[in-house]
Amino acid sequence: MNYSSIWTAAVILQKDVKTELRSRHGVSILILFGVTATMVISFALGIPDIDEAVAAALLWIILFFLSVAGLGYSFLREEEQMTMDGLLMAASVEGVYLGKVLFNLMLLLVAQGAVLPLFILVFNLQIGPWARFLAAMFFGSCGLSVACTLVAALVSRTGAKGPMLAVLAFPILFPLLIAASADTAAALLGAAGEGLQVLVLYPGVVGAFALMLVKFIWEE
């Protein structure tokens, strides 16, 4: 982990964005998943007015499944096209990981740009302080991306597909999801919450572990 890793991360991000813009495969899956989940929940509940705490929990359940459904592609695609070895020859593994984290974060934020307005609309939510709500969304997404990207790297090496990412990522994301839904509920109610420090600390702590461990994933 040094300056060249950060440079690598920027180059990887640029490469992934360019690839994504060609097919728009990853981002469209995330948006469709989020929209579908929101509509299904809204339809099943049938009422526009739900409790703020329930709305916050539902939102983070959607974001959790959206992440584990969509963020697995980052490494799986490299493995399938057999480009991962090339990447690792050209760049440090920490740099590749960081680049993928940034790309996944970008995917999540773009997807939220489509899903959040819909969610707020169908559940008729009144956002208390917008800054707190958006801060919870942003730092929560950083945590989702940091944790899911490392677990996605692990899963890409197992040959397992499907629900594996959800099973492995859930225990890691458990504290983040609790804190994020508590803090989002507080933001919706306009009350003083104390979850934001967890949301800010989480990507830092989990990211530090990930940077320490990521080199072992591709080492034979």
Partner: peptide, 27 residues
Amino acid sequence: RRARLSAVYVVFAFSVVPFLVFILPRA
């Protein structure tokens, strides 16, 4: 490979311990 990836996972999971043990119970 099983040993290596399992070890990575079990060490990575340790990163949530401070949140579970120190932060959430106090909140």
